[in-house]
Amino acid sequence: MKVFITFLALAIASAAAVEEIVRPKDLPKITGNKIEGRITNGYPAYEGKAPYTVGLGFSKNGAGWWCGGSIIGNTWVLTASHCTADAESVTVYFGATWRTQAQYTHWVSRTNFISHSSADIALIRIPHVDFWSMVNKVELPSYNDRYNNYESWWAVACGWGGTYDGSPLPDWLQCVDLQIISNSECRQTYGSGTVTDSVICVRVQDGKGTCQGDSGGPLVTHDGNKLVGVTSFVAAAGCQAGLPAGFARVTSHLDWIRDNTGISY
């Protein structure tokens, strides 16, 4: 059976899909064949649980879309390249548990976007931020871990959105604990053309997973708190269909991150 995938950026306004422009906190319910934005069947994050998670409100020509990202240094955020594609600018929400009630925000133009040429991963250069309990970085895996496939490891993904199919879209940050699976298992669903060595997948069980609006957000290991994935795709059959969810594999891009940011471990 052929399974289609869908990227997870959630439009907050577009001339084709929505008649009016709305603020990020007023995300409309998407109907038809599209999936609503959410961490599905996760749990509300307490303040400071994931201080490395940022909200990203992208805009272009008055339209916009919402993604997540991870602070990896005082001047850098890591996200998905399908989030930055064609955007003119982004507003970065720092230290927000409630989606738009951030500790502070920064507006950043597209001249500060660096997208990978062949993978769904991107960097955003941000004004310098100081770290504290509500705003902090997440560490990347070390070079010693670059060949670790993390199979069977548990990790946490965080993002904003509803908690089940058909739910209203709450603004409180949601997190979900997910188990990483082998690429060979993930390829049984999506094939080797989609699940390359630079992809990492998680098992979606009991309706727990990622969905639109979570794009670009973090997948961080329970053991060691390392950023191993950037939220990328799910099956078009639905975020709660029980099919694996895919992330850009951070260990595949450590050289690229270091070359562009100077960050390495």
Rank of each mutant, 00 (worst) to 15 (best):
A235L: 02
T75H: 05
Y143D: 12
G224V: 05
R99Q: 12
V220E: 11
V135N: 05
F7I: 12
S109G: 12
D223Q: 14
R146E: 12
A45V: 05
G57P: 01
K34N: 13
T196C: 00
L169P: 00
G159L: 03
V54Q: 05
F113S: 10
D223I: 12
Q240K: 00
W154C: 08
Q205V: 11
D120I: 10
L10E: 13
T251R: 02
E88N: 08
Y265L: 10
S118Q: 13
S81G: 11
T31G: 10
I257R: 02
E185R: 13
I35E: 15
I30L: 15
V18H: 14
P127A: 12
V156F: 04
A236I: 02
R203K: 11
N183W: 04
N61H: 07
R249G: 03
G262Q: 02
V92Q: 05
I121T: 13
A17P: 00
N260V: 09
S118F: 06
T79I: 09
G162D: 12
N148M: 01
D197T: 10
V108M: 02
E20Q: 08
I121E: 14
Y93C: 00
P127H: 06
H82T: 10
W107Y: 15
S133W: 11
T105S: 07
W76L: 02
T6Y: 03
G37D: 03
S264E: 09
D86C: 01
I71H: 04
D177V: 05
A9T: 15
H222P: 00
C211P: 08
V22N: 08
G57Q: 07
G68H: 03
I124Q: 06
A248F: 02
P244T: 03
A50M: 09
N225A: 14
I124W: 09
V22F: 05
F233Y: 12
V77G: 04
